[in-house]
Design a protein around this nucleic acid. Structure first.
Lengths: 296, 296
DNA sequence: TAAAAATACTCCATAGGTATTTTAT
DNA sequence: ATAAAATACCTATGGAGTATTTTTA
């Protein structure tokens, strides 16, 4: 069977037209190169090189084989070059899914920096609910997902990015000290305003509130946090607002944000990908980068 | 350093998507193939294959590397083919495709002589429809094809082998002089029995008959000419039969064969190969040989 | 005779095989 | 529990080195 080594040696020989110098140019001994050339000729069944004591030159067929060999070696070089380029971390297309309660707040903060530090990264963003993201991740339609941990789904792994505390958003009330920590009982007897079914935010809030004494509350079911906040401002109830959303969503003086007393409700936001994905390194790096940007 | 062996193993793996079966297909053990794939990945610095316990598939980069590898392996094959052709004309493996309306009649006539005059030729015959042959020829799964000219497909060239006239096969009728030439109008008002869709024979016959006055005919759609002839013998209709099939298919006295008046319907049968094939010389010789055997 | 390639031989790297372990379902 | 790939370990092929011989101008 023919080998690339034989083609490389032939190439060296055709360049130097001298077995000794050709061998030297590819860092092997003269007999080693002679042997490989000989074997190539034997396998192909034709004489490639005309050996004279004072001169060596390729036969007509040798020239033809040489041209083909050159093409092959060039393509091999291209293949290796391609791989080298690809092996640079965080480059090429990356399809990233993000849940709606994070995307509009996180992306403006990190996208400019990411595209600057990783100019070869071609990000495609998809914003939708956790369940859909999980499915698309598993089928390979997405490369990675940013969502609250843990994410259900077989064969998925994750890295933590940042911890997101929930704040209590209520109508401003002069009698309340903004520094004072809110308690679960503060939710008692008020309307708890939440997003519609399917948003993990809703589930997380309900989970925290499940031990409220009297759960007489209207959970609304809005499709955007902006709506929920407007309802809060109008005095219709309270909500649990992720800290990351606070800056953007609450510019209204009628809304007061309060931290909770320990244990504070919180969610861990992470990057999730398929365990079998070859871009493990990429995702670790990406998670690290995001974490650095957000916790700085 | 990268090796052709690694590319061959990668090709096998990409085809079977299963380490064990891929290894078997290239006649090595599973660990041997695993090792080579692993080393290729290590050398390139990228993961080519995503290994899951139940499924194996190429990564995006793996696909790209694979495409390049395929090109390289094809060029290596061409190099070897070229050399073989130079050293021994018409020797070594030759994968030949033939259409069903020629294969069973042509091969018995020529195969014995070909294997005698070219004992080093290792023929592999594939018999299927024109469209499939054209595709497999273009992808390199076949080296050459025997079919009716012209054959569609980019980058293909051909050489004529022999001209095949169509004869009219009809139920024997004492009132008809067998020497008398048939006319297109003889087909009028009878059932025209043909092979099913996809056979070029069908298209050729329909092409000839497209100007029949009253095309009230049942074109049947059989899968073999033998069936068609049986239908003719039973008086169910007529058909256009290539002359090359006549000897084999028509031993039934109930069937009468008549030549057509000029211009006789005919097809040119030729040998077709890729213009880029290095075995140009081989195919010219083969076509010449076949032509000599058939027109003698 | 001189220069260069081929041969002889020895050694060692590595591809490959068998047996086994690990891993994921 | 099963199937599949990875690992461990051993064998053997063959590529390469050194020393030498052959060839031919």
């Amino acid at each position: 069977m023919i080998s690339l080594r034989q083609l490389r040696y032939l190439q060296a020989l055709s360049k130097h037209l001298h077995f000794g110098r050709a061998a030297e140019s590819v860092s092997v001994s003269q007999p080693a190169l002679s042997m490989q050339i000989r074997e190539l000729e034997t396998y192909l069944g034709i004489t490639l090189v005309e050996r004279q004591s004072n001169a060596v030159h390729l036969t007509r067929e040798g020239q033809e084989v040489m041209m083909r060999a050159e093409r092959i070696l060039a393509e091999v070089r291209d293949l290796v070059d391609y791989a080298r380029q690809v092996s640079l971390p965080l480059s090429g297309p990356l399809r990233l899914g993000i849940i709606p309660s994070i995307a509009p707040y996180l992306l403006p903060k990190v996208l400019p920096k990411i595209t600057k530090t990783h100019p070869d990264l071609e990000l495609t963003i998809r914003e939708t609910l956790t369940e859909t993201l999980s499915r698309e991740l598993q089928t390979g339609d997405l490369d990675a997902v940013i969502a609250a941990l843990p994410m259900d789904g077989a064969g998925l792994v994750s890295a933590e990015i940042f911890e997101d505390r929930f704040l209590l958003a209520r109508k401003t009330d002069p009698t309340i000290d903004p520094k004072k920590r809110a308690e679960v009982c503060d939710l008692d007897g008020t309307n708890l305003l939440l997003l519609e079914e399917g948003h993990c935010l809703r589930d997380q809030a309900l989970n925290y509130c499940q031990n409220i004494p009297s759960p007489s509350r209207n959970t609304l079911g809005a499709t955007s946090l902006a709506t929920v906040i407007q309802m809060v401002a109008a005095g219709y109830g309270v909500t649990l607002l992720p800290e990351i959303c606070a800056d953007v969503e609450v510019r209204d003086e009628r809304v007061l944000l309060q931290r909770f007393a320990e244990p504070q409700p919180r969610r861990m936001v992470g990057l999730i990908w398929r365990k079998s994905s070859p871009r493990h390194q990429d995702f670790e790096v990406l998670a690290e980068t995001l974490s650095g940007l957000l916790n700085a």
